[in-house]
Design a protein around this nucleic acid. Structure first.
Lengths: 238, 238
DNA sequence: ACTGAAAAAATGGTATACAAAAAAATGGTG
DNA sequence: CACCATTTTTTTGTATACCATTTTTTCAGT
């Protein structure tokens, strides 16, 4: 056993570097989820590597990961850009959320304790607070966080990860198809939901979540807006 | 729905310009799913780069991707190895399959036509054939293919992708916890399922799929076998 | 035979080079 | 002035090399 002495204050330590990448990944991911990087925005490798002070190789790795999560789209020889979900994808994502998140509610209700409920209430409170003080970006992320945390409470890490991905993509969908000023989730919906879960009423929570998600989806104006190549002839009625 | 049409195999968010890398990715992925690379097997970068004739950079990219799909595990400073699923993960995966695959059956039944049924029957036939001629590896993959194709027929590409990941991981789970000679799926189960779907009986198909998955899970002997660091004190009752 | 030090190999990250492709700039022409 | 073709510049995608750190293996010494 080799003696690992504490005072390792290496500047470019390995562990630090590893976490650095993760931090950058999170920074980009958050920026996308919070819609500070809007769908369609190009993400050039050089620019990112300069901004974050890591090599292009590292940036590339991060972009790969984001692409796998479908937050960015990699077009061969054209690089990365923030994904602009299609109407079909939006439908798929919300259908998937219906199936998974609703299906998880009974499990969540079963495992919901005081501590968990308190944590969720805190998240809901922060979300309301952010919304009230005009920090829409933060509110969007907190709303996603709420749904993800809920899924995690089901105890199924795999499904929770799926929900995480679906929520991230939902942010993109809201950015493209949502109305300005109308954030996906109604502010007190989440609190109501916690109530049902705390009461152990899984079926009730399930039904509520279903309506909740339907409401979000209904608030979108999903109209396959401008394709890459709009038919000008048609546009101008010629 | 988005794109769940004929082109069976993989659909990645990443449209990889270079087909070579994608082919290698598939080669490794298939080898893992077919259990030619067994859980725990180490995947050294140099070895892979030599075998496939591409640079270590490319190999790393592929390993990254496989790691995100949880087919390989990247341990810091120790490199990549084929993932050995834990008992908990196995449970999560099968619970997730219950929720998603069963939930998809009504949609699949609704969209099932003659062509689709014929294609599924062909897959089921190939699977039986492979099993009969002792090609267990091929049968395993074909079985996974069947479930994935089924999910794709639901029309929800997002959920189909989830199912794809779950099926790949299921192969690993079978490799670790399955009994030799007993492949996950009963050979005529799949044919029965097609029958229900073709008859448009979504609920029946759903129930059948549920039993089908339960049967697979039940055939496993999930016993948290020897961890890396067994507690010797406990082992010897001290 | 076992422990511990030295050597070798492997990983994780970066930088650099370069071909190929795309985007931008340029310039000629009607 | 607008439009098209060509050239220049960027940018991507991959390979190669380098280095620090860590793991693994080898090898010695008691």
């Amino acid at each position: 056993m080799s003696d690992a002495q504490a005072p390792i204050k290496r500047r470019t330590a390995v562990k630090e570097g590893d976490e650095r990448h993760d931090a950058i990944y999170r920074a980009v991911s958050d920026a996308i989820v919070e819609q500070r990087l809007k769908p369609g925005a190009r993400l050039r490798e050089d620019a990112l590597s300069e901004v974050f002070g890591i090599s292009r190789t590292g940036i590339r790795k991060i972009l790969q990961r984001l692409a796998l999560e479908q937050l960015v789209t990699l077009t061969p020889r054209r690089g990365a850009s923030v994904t602009r979900p299609t109407a079909d994808e939006a439908k798929d994502v919300f259908d998937a959320r219906q199936l998974i998140e609703c299906g998880l509610m009974p499990d969540v209700a079963r495992r919901m304790g005081e501590k968990e409920a308190a944590e969720l209430r805190e998240l809901a409170r922060q979300e309301r607070e952010a919304l009230r003080s005009g920090k829409q970006s933060v509110a969007i992320r907190l709303s996603a966080d709420f749904h993800v945390r809920l899924a995690q409470l089901s105890g199924n890490a795999t499904l929770a990860e799926f929900v995480e991905r679906l929520c991230s993509r939902s942010s993109l969908i809201l950015a493209v198809y949502g109305h300005r000023g109308h954030l996906g989730c109604e502010s007190h919906d989440h609190d109501d939901l916690i109530g049902y879960l705390e009461a152990g009423n899984g079926e009730r929570a399930k039904a509520f979540m279903s309506r909740h998600l339907k409401a979000i989806e209904a608030s979108l104006s999903i109209v396959d807006e401008k394709d890459e190549a709009p038919d000008l002839r048609e546009v101008f009625g010629l």
